[in-house]
């Protein structure tokens, strides 16, 4: 059954969404298939935000503590809206989903869980994921699901700034000093194997064609953003082979277990507690 098109709601904060979803006059809870799609998108954003949070108080300069913190905070906001919406289909909160699922239940693609590495590697990852989010959310604005369309409309504006930030730094680091160039090349090579997975088929997206953006359709607009940046930075597209991927099916790299152990430890010590 095709999900009914809803008019885009007002800008959705996670709290507003949590309070209104499934209530009379609020956003309707999504059908199971839409919730599964939203879960994958929410996990991507959540795991990236967790990684960006690791930078705060450790950045190369104060301006970057602020910038990476801001980007992480926006991304966490997207995650919270998406997970709140997805969870409402199953009677679960954003925190049930974030803190009380195990690795194999997470649906994030593997690029998001990759360790930060040095600043150059973080920027390489951030360039790729910001370009990906930009084309994804631009497409999702036309989703048949009004709530997802509204979340995407808000997110699209924010990731535009994130993309600016990573473009500027990619060029600056690539053309800065010998050392920064060496690190930028290494960072890009380390992260590039995870690019193809972003555009791999996703059964959750295929199940709701009018709601979802098909990942394969995003490759061309993604390349149209990223390749000119690499050209400006005088960087070659790495030839490192792609990893097998499978994040949408619950297949993850070794990094995710460590990330979840840290993220979930306190919540799991006190199951059922309210914070």
């Amino acid at each position: 059954m095709e999900h009914q098109r809803q008019p885009p709601t007002e800008v959705l904060t996670p709290e507003a969404l949590a309070a209104s979803v499934g209530q009379q006059g609020g956003s309707p809870s999504p059908p199971d298939a839409v919730a599964r799609y939203a879960l994958g998108l929410g996990d991507d954003a959540l795991i990236l935000a967790q990684r960006l949070g690791e930078w705060i108080a450790n950045a190369p300069e104060l301006e970057e503590d602020v910038a990476l913190g801001n980007i992480g905070l926006d991304t966490l906001g997207h995650a919270r809206s998406l997970l709140t919406y997805a969870g409402s289909a199953w009677g679960k909160t954003e925190d049930d989903l974030a803190y009380f699922r195990d690795e194999a239940d997470f649906r994030c693609r593997q690029i998001f869980e990759q360790p930060n590495g040095d600043f150059a590697q973080t920027i390489a990852r951030q360039l790729i994921v910001s370009a990906y989010f930009t084309v994804l959310y631009r497409g999702l604005v036309d989703s048949a699901d009004g709530t997802l369309a509204a979340i995407a409309a808000k997110a699209a504006k924010e990731v535009d700034y994130h993309l600016d930030h990573s473009e500027i730094w990619s060029v600056r680091l690539a053309l800065g000093t010998e050392e920064s160039r060496r690190r930028t090349v290494a960072g890009l090579e380390a992260i590039w194997p995870f690019v193809d997975e972003l555009f791999a088929d996703d059964p959750a997206a295929d199940a709701v064609p009018a709601v979802a953006v098909r990942p394969g359709t995003l490759r061309e607009p993604f390349d149209a953003i990223v390749l000119p940046v690499l050209a400006r930075a005088e960087l070659a597209v790495p030839t490192t082979p792609a990893v097998a991927g499978g994040g949408r099916l619950g297949v993850h790299s070794e990094a995710l277990g460590h990330l979840l152990a840290e993220m979930q430890v306190l919540a799991r010590q006190h199951p059922g507690a309210v914070w």
Partner: peptide
């Protein structure tokens, strides 16, 4: 900053990130 990655709810994580960022 030591607690951002372990904040026990996503709302608390968001507030803490915003706060530490304010301090910067």
């Amino acid at each position: 900053g030591n607690w951002i990655t372990r904040a026990p709810s996503l709302k608390r994580k968001a507030i803490l990130m915003a706060k530490v960022q304010d301090e910067a």
